[in-house]
Design a protein around this nucleic acid. Structure first.
Length: 427
RNA sequence: GUGGGCGUAGUGUAGUGGUUAACACGUCAGGUUGUGGCCCUGAAGAUCGAGGGUUCAAUUCCCUCCGCUCACCCCA
């Protein structure tokens, strides 16, 4: 056994898997820019306070999942467990409220949470997320959902569904929570132990308990949308109307209101949503987000509305990989130089340098191997051509260029960069 | 943090209370004179996760630990 392995909950992405990742990341960037979102990168770590205040003291993330450390100056720092707090911090810090609102930004980055790994859940994970800050209108809510939906669609993931809900705001939520607690207190004997603990600490979470006994109780629990204040109600109604309108463009948009949809972070207000794959199970949420109208103010800015989502790239890539229709490019070098003898080796090395400088992808076969071995090597790398240089070629000044993607055919080519580059590109 | 499953070469697997732990893929080397893919031959590569125990003897039985994995929790 090797003495070192990737830390628990982390993994290596080897060259062979990179095509899946570049596809996902390229798609994310394309979709985001189509919607007018500009990329933002923020630091991997931030002041611990930012997350405690932004994400919420009471959340599991803050309570037990953060990678927190004290730096040498004595400040408490934390590896970012999510993306929104950092983006909002940047919005405030750089005065982005002076730009046309809303400010639309996206990120693609790694995040860190100390959790027990399982399928689709890692300690270092990758997210593509977007944030639209500075406009509280329902139009933006639906724009963000549309963005998320088209991203998942662009990844060729079919059968996904969009769940939406509204959990109100600071105005109307307290009354709803009271109603919810009252309801569950009446059923205190019927719910599971976990739920009894949740009752006071995180009442919203009662709703998405997976145990069957609790499910049926949740079904008849008070609905947040019945407790919305007038402003939240109007917002919600328009969100639904716009969502319905989206179906003109996306007839397969499978969205539905889920009264049990709540989210784990404290900052969410009003609209929340998730996209799940066809066979949802375990850690399957592909994308989740919502509105966070109190967050900017909470971390020291002017009251500013915002909405966004984050999608789990690790999970999305896993889906892409499982769908067999993904064709990997399988790209080899243009040329592998096969050389016999030291003089030919030196000549080959200098030709390789010249060709690379000219933009041709070239490898020199490992020195000291037989010609047969070098040819096998060229073939194994899926090269387009083998350029053979031995004593004969050195003397005549003409190398043998052998196409490897075809059964036969071999031509002489003058041993200079120009001629070889032309021959390789020519075809 | 709590449960279940699993730990044999780089990868995927087989196997047995007892002499040199097997197979496939991969890697490397050969298959005469300088030419790949298929094929053939050979080689390297495993303290059988670690430690302890039972036994004349353990990779195989038992315990502990570690690791991986799935699920709960929570979330992307």
């Amino acid at each position: 056994m090797p003495s070192f392995r990737a830390p628990r909950g982390t993994y290596d992405i080897l060259p062979g898997d990179q095509p899946y990742w570049s596809f996902a990341m390229r798609t994310a960037a394309e979709v985001a820019s189509r919607f007018g979102y500009g990329r933002i990168d923020t630091p991997v770590f931030e002041a611990t306070d930012l997350f405690e205040r932004g994400v919420g003291d009471a959340t599991d993330i803050v309570q037990k999942e953060m990678y927190t450390f004290e730096d040498h100056g004595g400040d408490s720092m934390t590896l970012r467990p999510e993306g929104t707090a950092g983006v909002c911090r940047a919005y405030i810090e750089h005065g982005l409220h002076n730009q046309p609102q809303p400010v639309r930004m996206y990120y693609q980055a790694n995040f860190f949470r100390y959790e027990r790994p399982q399928a689709g859940r890692f300690r270092q994970f990758s997210q593509f997320g977007v944030e639209a800050i500075g406009d509280g209108s329902p139009y933006v809510d639906v724009e963000v959902m549309e963005l998320g939906w088209s991203f998942v669609r662009a990844l060729n993931i079919s059968g996904a569904s969009l769940r939406v809900n509204s959990i109100g705001d600071s105005e109307c939520r307290p009354a709803y929570l009271d109603a919810l607690r009252d309801y569950y207190r009446d059923h205190i004997d019927d719910i599971c132990d976990d739920d009894r603990r949740r009752l006071e600490r995180a009442p919203l979470r009662l709703l998405d308990c997976k145990k069957s006994q609790c499910q049926s109780i949740g079904d008849t629990a008070p609905k947040s949308t019945d407790y919305l204040c007038n402003a939240c109600k109007a917002h919600w109604v328009l969100v639904l109307a716009l969502l319905e309108g989206l179906k003109e463009t996306y007839p397969d948009l499978d969205y539905y209101v889920d009264h049990r949809l709540v989210r784990g972070l404290d900052y969410y207000t009003r609209t929340v949503f998730e996209i799940e794959p066809e066979n949802a199970a375990g850690q399957s949420t592909l994308l989740g987000g919502g509105r966070y109208d109190g967050l900017i103010e909470e971390i020291g800015g002017q009251p500013t509305p915002g909405i966004g989502f984050a999608s789990g790239l690790d999970r999305l890539v896993a889906h892409v990989k499982s769908q067999e229709d993904f064709e990997s490019p399988e790209i080899g070098p243009d040329v592998v130089i096969v050389h016999l003898g030291e003089a030919a080796g030196r000549r080959g090395a200098s030709l390789a340098a010249g060709l690379r400088a000219a933009g041709v992808a070239v490898l020199v076969a490992p020195a000291g191997r037989s010609m047969r071995a070098q040819m096998r090597y060229s073939n194994a790398l899926n090269a387009r051509y083998a350029l053979i240089i031995g004593d004969r070629e050195l003397e005549s000044g003409e190398g043998s260029l052998r196409p490897l993607q075809e059964d036969s055919g071999q031509a002489g080519v003058s041993l200079d960069v120009e001629a070889i580059a032309r021959a390789v590109r020519g075809a």
